[in-house]
């Protein structure tokens, strides 16, 4: 059963996953080509100075890519389920409805995390060429909330798309925007360092939210007028 569900999810997200893999790796390669230019062809210490003392973030252009990846993956996964209420097929499978939702959500999330780990691996490899561990760590702490925001956005889009009523979809979207934007506050590097635990925790807690919309769907909330 697990295999079958994961197979279905894989069919839905593989293209989106591939696109975001390429997009992210392309963005990172671009970042490090710029860094290379800054270090090799300009004054290396000037370039470092701008990062270390003046707080410029060489990975800044990565900012919204994890967010878009989270949104894109969730849409790829849930749009085919919501279209013509195909989620009924999924709920009808011989498996508990909450369990099947969590399996889908878990698979998507796992795929997103793998994608993010690949991004981070490329980030590490590139950074290690040009910067010492302190700088890598500083930028890592700075970009971490963006990745956590991508995870939260992924879960919240699932919640919004499965919700049967448009009015509530809009309300959820407003709250989701307010919530997810907290992961992307414009701030100095490392500003989130004391709050990573909070943002990690909230990102983790969003994982099961899709159950709420699933419940409302099964109860027939859209049929109550």
């Amino acid at each position: 059963m697990y295999k079958a569900i994961f197979y279905k999810e894989w069919l839905k997200i593989r293209w989106a996953l591939m696109i975001f893999l390429l997009l992210g790796v392309f963005a990172l390669v671009n970042i490090f080509l710029n860094v290379r230019y800054g270090v090799r062809f300009m004054d290396a210490h000037d370039y470092w100075y701008r990062i270390i003392i003046q707080g410029s973030n060489y990975a800044a252009s990565l900012k919204y890519i994890p967010l878009f990846a989270g949104l894109g993956l969730a849409i790829a996964q849930y749009f085919p389920e919501v279209l013509n209420q195909r989620i009924k097929l999924t709920f009808h499978l011989p498996i508990r409805e909450n369990k099947v939702l969590l399996m889908q959500q878990g698979f998507g999330l796992a795929a997103l995390i793998v994608l993010f780990l690949i991004y981070l691996a490329v980030f590490f490899i590139g950074s290690a060429i040009f910067f010492p561990s302190e700088v890598i760590n500083m930028i890592l702490v700075t970009i971490m909330p963006w990745f956590l925001g991508g995870l939260a956005a992924y879960s919240l889009v699932g919640l919004i798309m499965l919700e049967p009523l448009w009015l509530y979809r809009v309300l959820y979207a407003v709250i989701a925007y307010g919530f997810v934007s907290r992961f992307y506050i414009q701030a100095v590097p490392m500003a989130y360092s004391n709050m990573l635990w909070f943002f990690s925790l909230t990102a983790v807690l969003t994982v099961i939210l899709v159950l709420f919309s699933g419940y409302r769907f099964r109860k027939g909330e859209m049929h109550h007028g």
Binding site: L11, P80, N84, R86, K88, H92, P94, I95
Partner: peptide
């Protein structure tokens, strides 16, 4: 649920 075969209105299936 395993004992029930369900054909949704409009023959909806996983069209992807």
């Amino acid at each position: 649920k395993e004992k029930i075969g369900f054909l949704i209105e409009g023959h909806v299936q996983y069209a992807f």
